[in-house]
Every structure is written in structure tokens, then in C-alpha cells.
Design a protein around this nucleic acid. Structure first.
Lengths: 235, 235
DNA sequence: CGAAACCTTGAGAGCTCTCAATGTGAGTGG
DNA sequence: CCACTCACATTGAGAGCTCTCAAGGTTTCG
């Protein structure tokens, strides 16, 4: 394994055409620099500020991002302004990885984030001649598909309360299953993810607290009562 | 390319453990016997009757199916009976292709169908050592993901009318874009796909006909007026 | 022709949305 | 430290869309 400074690697550093700034905090472990376990691909550290756009819908998919720190939302927007958030991304997860040349949705930083950037073409070239890499990409996409199908079930057949509860439980699991966490996203983001309005989300949160299914310290700081919440959903 | 009779190939024919029956109609073109353009994999013809189960949810994913003729629905069911149809599959499309060992949804024949069956493990083995095959599998899964995300937008942010119109337009495109076709599925199937009830679907169909956006000959036989329908949606 | 499944239509209820007002918290400047 | 602002969140009242329940009509199939 090379221990050259990151900036000395051959991957060009994206600058003028991109928003965001260079990550200055040292990245560790080194392992996380690798993409799909492939030591020939090393990511470039990069960071985005809260609410900053990472890429736009239909923009050319030049980079792939591995989130180290923070949180990201991806979304689609209709001509009349309606928005559907297609997913929230937490540390360790990948985003922007399209199988075609253009992004299918936009991505924005929910909080200040640090990530690694990889060139998509380089990864594709690697996959084209390395079956192991290709299978890992397939695996990543398959997992996304499973998530999307589960979310379809929630959106198509869940009540507003079921959608919210399922969302909270899922988020807790992905943040370490401690039952206590700070929501990285606004009520609007939650509403646009669950196909609801912010008012409905707010009312349901209040109802959950009144029913003793969760505690709120400051709006976004939550403590879930899993046994109580689990009884509210069939998903 | 071998021209041996199909039954002489080495792929074991699924019998006792499976419903359905052997396809007797000769398959053509030969090309369609191949999976992912790979001549080492030849499918076994098979057929299912209307409403017959092809595989169940959580069942072991032993086979992959390439639909030659007919139509198939895949769905998930909740403990209380609510059902979400995750997709309709038409001739030329693949189904049952999981990246893990178990199916994530059930599949049933909407009409009498003919298909080709491939052994999943054999395909996986092929992908593990052939990057081209692996990339094609990745590509297939990526396309499904795109469809699922588009459907999420529809379910999360579309009105009942928008969901129905988008569905009809999509179906028309996939059936040849002639503007005239026979719905292979019932109102209940449509409702469970769009997250609606059969009554709502029925009322909207009537309204579309009254508004001159489509013609109905016999319930399921439709003629769409694309220009009229296109004005009704933002998707 | 009869039966069963499927589809349509109607009336009323309920859930979620819309519109509007109030409350809360973080950041800023006096 | 306080007042102010602005974004975000909560709460309320009423409207509207879709669902539920029910009945009647249509198609399919034996």
C-alpha cells in the first residue's frame, strides 16, 4: 500500500467546475479510501457545506461519492415544484453511482459533509475487465433496488403514521440502533421523503410523543420507544 | 452454436417441485434462448397458466425467468393483507433475478405465459468470472432501480389521476406505443400497483372516457388519446 | 343459460391537505 | 443581555380527495 500524500495520486482533483472545498482533515482508516475493495482506485477527499448542491438532476455523472461524515439527500423535482426525496445517505454509503451517463436525481448535503470522490469512468473501466468489481457494483445497485421496493410498499400502502414510524425506525437502525439520535433533516425533507406535508409530519410527531412512543428534547433530538413503535406498523 | 434439441441440453428440467408445464410450442428466434447474450446459457422453455404462482415471497431464488409471451405481476404482501404490486412484466423482460438467495417478492402470471428458465447459480457463476456478463446483470438491475425510483415519485407525489394516466401511458409505450391495447391486468392489480382502490381506478377511467382522453370497447380494451393524456400529468 | 368474478356507480365517512396563525430556536447586532 | 430577524416547527379550522360500504351492471366461462 502506498503512503504517498493523497494529492500526489494521479486522479485529477476537481476544482473550478465544482462547488465544495478540499477536505483538510486527515482521512482514516486508509481502507476507506478504496472503492469496492479495489486498491487501484483511491478517492480524493472533498467536502460540502450544509445545503450545498453536490450534483444536479440530469447533470453528467462524472464522479461517484463515498460519504465519510455528514448526511446527504437525493431527490427528483417535478415541473410544478413537487419534490420526492428518493433517499437519505449516511456515512459509509455511496451515492451518485449511475449506470448511465447522467444523474437520475439531484444530491444535496443535509449537513456539512466529508466524502471521497472517485471518477465514474475509471470505476466503469475497472468493472469492464474485472468481474469481481462488476459483481460488487451489481450488488450495490441490487441493495438500492431492494430499498426502493420497500419504500414503494410504504408509499403505496402505508398510512401517514405508518410511513413516519417506519422511517424513524429505519433511521435509528442506520444510525446505530441506540434509540436516540438527532434528525439530520428538516420536517420538509421528511415530508418529501414520505409523500406527506410538513404539517402532517409535525402533527404525527406530536401524537407519537403524547402516546409515549418517543421523547423530543429539541425538535430534532429524538428518543424512540421501539417496543411501542413496533406495534404501530405492519411493515 | 449448437442446434441440439433443447431437451438434450445439460440444464436439468424443473418438474416435481414446480407448478407450470413444459412449453410445447417451438421457441424462436434461437437468440432469445440466450441469457445476457451468453451462448453458454440456454434456457428451458416453460409455461404458466393465468393466475398461477411462479414463485413466492421469500422462496429460494433458484431460477431466473425470461418472459416470451404473456404478462406477469410481482408483489409484496403485508400481514394484514394489503398488497403492493412492485411491477408488471411484459414479453422480453426478465424476472426473478435476485442478487441474494431468496426472492424479495412473489410473482404470478397475469395471463397464460411462456418463458425460459435459467438456473440462477449458473448465471452467478458465469458473472463471477466474466466481467461482461456481470456488467450486463448490473445494467439490468440499474434499469429496475430507475423504474422503481420513477414509481416512488409517482406514488409519493402524484394524485390518483396522475398515477393512472402515467400508468396507462407507460403501458402503451411498453406494448408498442400504438395507443390501442388490451389491459392484461384487473382493476385490482392496477389499484394495488398505483396505491389506490379499485373503485377509484374505475371512477377515474370513466372520467377519462367522459373527458375524451380515451375510448373503452370492453372494459380492458383501450384506445388512448396521447395528446389529451399528456396534458394531465407533470411526470 | 346460470354462476361467479369483475367492473361501475353512489353516498357518506375519514384521512390528509391547504391556508393561516402562533410558537420556538439560532444567529446577529445594539 | 436583550431585542430582532429569519427559518423552522407546531397547532387549528375547514376543504377536498380518496376510501369504505353498498348496490347494481357487465363480462367471462362452464
Amino acid at each position: 500500500m502506498s503512503s504517498l500524500p493523497i494529492s500526489a495520486r494521479s486522479i485529477p482533483f476537481p476544482t473550478s467546475t465544482r462547488k465544495g472545498s478540499v477536505g483538510t482533515v486527515p482521512i482514516s482508516p486508509w481502507d476507506s479510501l478504496y472503492f469496492a475493495g479495489c486498491p487501484d482506485l483511491i478517492g480524493t477527499p472533498f467536502s460540502y457545506a450544509r445545503e450545498e448542491e453536490i450534483y444536479g438532476e440530469a447533470e453528467e455523472a462524472e464522479f461517484v461519492y463515498k460519504l465519510l461524515d455528514g448526511a446527504v439527500r437525493t431527490h427528483k423535482i417535478l415541473s410544478d415544484g413537487r419534490r420526492q426525496i428518493t433517499g437519505f445517505h449516511l456515512p459509509g454509503e455511496l451515492l451518485g453511482f449511475e449506470q448511465q451517463d447522467r444523474h437520475r436525481h439531484a444530491a444535496e448535503a443535509l449537513t456539512d459533509t466529508r466524502m471521497l470522490i472517485f471518477r465514474r469512468r475509471q470505476i466503469e473501466r475497472m468493472a469492464a475487465c474485472n468481474a469481481t468489481v462488476a459483481c460488487q457494483l451489481w450488488s450495490l445497485t441490487a441493495r438500492r433496488l431492494r430499498d426502493a421496493q420497500d419504500h414503494m410498499l410504504l408509499l403505496g400502502r402505508g398510512s401517514a403514521m405508518e410511513r413516519l414510524v417506519a422511517f424513524l425506525i429505519d433511521l435509528d437502525l442506520r444510525l446505530g440502533a441506540t434509540g436516540t439520535f438527532v434528525l439530520p433533516m428538516s420536517r420538509r425533507d421528511i415530508a418529501d421523503y414520505l409523500g406527506l406535508t410538513i404539517e402532517t409530519v409535525s402533527r404525527l410527531m406530536t401524537q407519537l410523543e403524547v402516546d409515549g412512543a418517543l421523547l423530543r428534547c429539541s425538535g430534532r433530538q429524538l428518543s424512540l420507544h421501539r417496543t411501542h413503535l413496533d406495534r404501530l406498523i405492519a411493515f
